[in-house]
Design a protein around this nucleic acid. Structure first.
Lengths: 124, 124
DNA sequence: TGGAAATTACGCACCTTTTCGTAACCATGG
DNA sequence: CCATGGTTACGAAAAGGTGCGTAATTTCCA
């Protein structure tokens, strides 16, 4: 990932989007949130290598970018739900397209392309 | 921007693609290389804030990912051309789509949204 | 029945690892 | 001395992991 993207060098929307999506976690979280509402501990289980600190930071970044909605229910133990906003849902197919593109990078060219429609599946 | 992506935590093509594209420079360089062949100094001029060190590192990363082709011509002063490979060209519209998506993130969405989050629907 | 322990979703301080900017330098031929 | 296409060393900054703490309710268990 990614470099220090705390600042921007252009007013390009692409750079702004990459500022949010750069790094290992944002797209992986997108992937797991595709399925619907998840809780903090669900996402920890889905992805055992993320630390709670990073999970909280990334979720808040996605929230403030308008990609994820956070809903806090009072009471104890505290309960919080995360789900994709409409903008987040619109992003999903674009990310999937990136994964499909990467799978074809090594390929020769536009010729042979008999692809089985498949999902971008992160094997664990 | 993004976190340190020296390692992968999954075998997901999305994560692999993000490892290459994360950060400020890869997409910006893509943007400038869209126009056709560029030289090292062209890219420095296009983007005055990148240091020669970073430019060289990023170009090599893109090259080894199969996105950029580097062509060295002998003679002095040494001349080197950079241009997008077919895979790089295929990537361009996807990046553009990300930029367009970002410009619409703040927008409401196709359907009306209305609803104060409330209790009652336990997530699975 | 009372006390201990578990639970959830983090925040904080501390420390290591990685990233990236700065500046200087290089080789060559014109 | 200039331009080209870099490389290297240095150091600051950012990213990211670890461990500890926390709040109020519920559950466990002797």
């Amino acid at each position: 990932m990614g470099p220090a993207m705390k600042t921007l060098v252009s007013r390009c929307p692409i750079e702004e989007a990459m500022q949010v999506l750069s790094g290992r976690w944002p797209t992986l979280l997108l992937y797991y949130l595709k399925d619907g509402t998840k809780r903090f501990s669900d996402l920890q289980r889905d992805n055992p290598t993320i630390s709670p600190k990073m999970l909280a930071l990334e979720l808040r970044k996605l929230e403030s970018a308008g990609i994820v909605q956070r809903t806090e229910f009072g009471g104890y133990p505290l309960r919080v739900d995360y789900l994709l906003t409409p903008a987040g849902l619109r992003l999903v197919p674009l990310i999937d397209a990136l994964g499909a593109w990467w799978e074809g990078v090594a390929e020769p060219g536009p010729a042979a392309a008999a692809g089985v429609p498949q999902d971008g599946a992160p094997a664990r």
